[in-house]
Design a protein around this nucleic acid. Structure first.
Lengths: 230, 230
DNA sequence: TAGATTGTTAATCGATTAACAATC
DNA sequence: TAGATTGTTAATCGATTAACAATC
């Protein structure tokens, strides 16, 4: 089994990441069926089973899958079954907020350093971190065995900051700056732009009620439930 | 022209949103060709032209598309050509950071209110906002003509907060809590989970170098550029 | 006009589905 | 055993591509 990631359709990969995330929220020992997962994801049970066969077989006919082992198998094939150290670049309001973010640990991401250009900020204690200077970036990255960074600098400084990160050895960047950046081919960037996320909601909105007025007293209807995930 | 959103393939819709975003970053008067957009997005020029024909024809053969009018046409069909008022639910570190976020305005999202349960926070001045109480939620939503909220409460309070929002009339929620929430059918939720975004980077990482050691002195190579978006 | 780029078609390619034999 | 659910196949469905006539 365990074909490799290259052979799995792009779209299946994104679903696999979703299954992985859901399985992380379940008790290790439980058993889950493709139709359970279907309910939680909205994908068909057939598709879920199909997705899994791209890289192996993990279930017991008549029973289902063990949460623990399925989660592990998916993590293995996706290559996310490892610990990663992470650096926060820019400790403005957003960066500072992320220094206190709890849920990274559960996913095996360890924030291990915070860096800023501003001499006023360098040396400050923030949460369990002491803010360090961009000038020490290479050392910090090497010593901390860091390959990933979260970019939280002001948009105008995004490109400069990225170049510093890359020069220091960072190979993956989560870009929260709302400013596109250029990187060499061997570096990954993942842009997260909250304004664009709001656009998705605006789209969904206009698809529904559209431009017409809302009901004065909205009914609550928490029965016909729908998952709106994390 | 202007077929409606329902008739456009799901995947094309997400590309359209991407084109829209790119066009927003260009000068209104400029002309852009499908191959220009191809370079910026990585999609083929043929696909881009195909995507546009799903809902009309906007170009001039031999010339290309006017940035302004193409952006507008896309925004119209996606239904994102309107102003929206937005409420921030929970002014912890993340919520407070978003109160100072600049780039929403450019996308026609107006943050107009900040709300918290904590009596210690209610009444505080934060940026240009005075934090208001959850108890006044319905009034705030009605008076402010608000349909969208950004959820920044602690994970444990996510579901409760969502129910309050829905009861107050909110119809679209950007969920930054890393906790899945249930909503009625007529409410949209868009989850944004930074840990999951980091997983994407981890996947990309393992697909490349994998587990082997990095070069001691990484070369910089900012020539073979690659767009790593905003 | 010559050069460029659109809009559209038909062919190809890939992903999803439904069904069911195999298995626990 | 009876009931349940997997893994897998073949058929269907949809999306992408390449090519080119139409147009500026």
């Amino acid at each position: 089994m365990s074909d490799h990631l290259e052979n799995i359709p792009e779209l299946a990969v994104s679903r696999l990441l979703r299954y992985h995330h859901i399985l992380m929220g379940m008790s290790q020992g439980d058993v889950v069926s493709s139709s359970d997962l279907s309910e939680k994801t909205g994908y068909t049970a057939a598709q879920i089973r199909r997705d899994l066969t791209y890289f192996g077989q993990f279930g017991t006919p008549g029973r289902g899958y063990t949460v623990d082992s399925l989660r592990n198998a998916i993590a293995d094939v996706l290559g996310i079954n490892r610990e990663s150290n992470v650096l926060i670049m820019g400790v403005g309001r957003v960066g500072a907020a992320l220094l206190h973010y709890e849920s990274f640990e559960k996913h095996r991401f360890h924030v291990v350093a915070a860096v800023d250009v501003d001499p006023e900020k360098v040396g400050l204690e923030m949460g369990r971190f002491k803010v360090r200077s961009v000038e020490d970036l290479s050392d910090i990255v090497t010593e901390g065995d860091i390959r990933m960074a979260i970019l939280c600098v002001p948009p105008a400084q995004a490109q400069t900051a990225v170049e510093q990160l890359v020069r220091a050895g960072i190979r993956a960047i989560l870009n929260l700056t709302a400013m596109p950046v250029d990187v060499p081919d061997d570096v990954s960037v993942r842009p997260v732009n909250l304004a664009v996320e709001l656009e998705w909601l605006a789209m969904a909105q206009s698809r529904r009620g559209g431009s017409r007025g809302e009901k004065a007293v909205p009914e609550t209807g928490f029965n016909e439930k729908k998952k709106g995930g994390d």
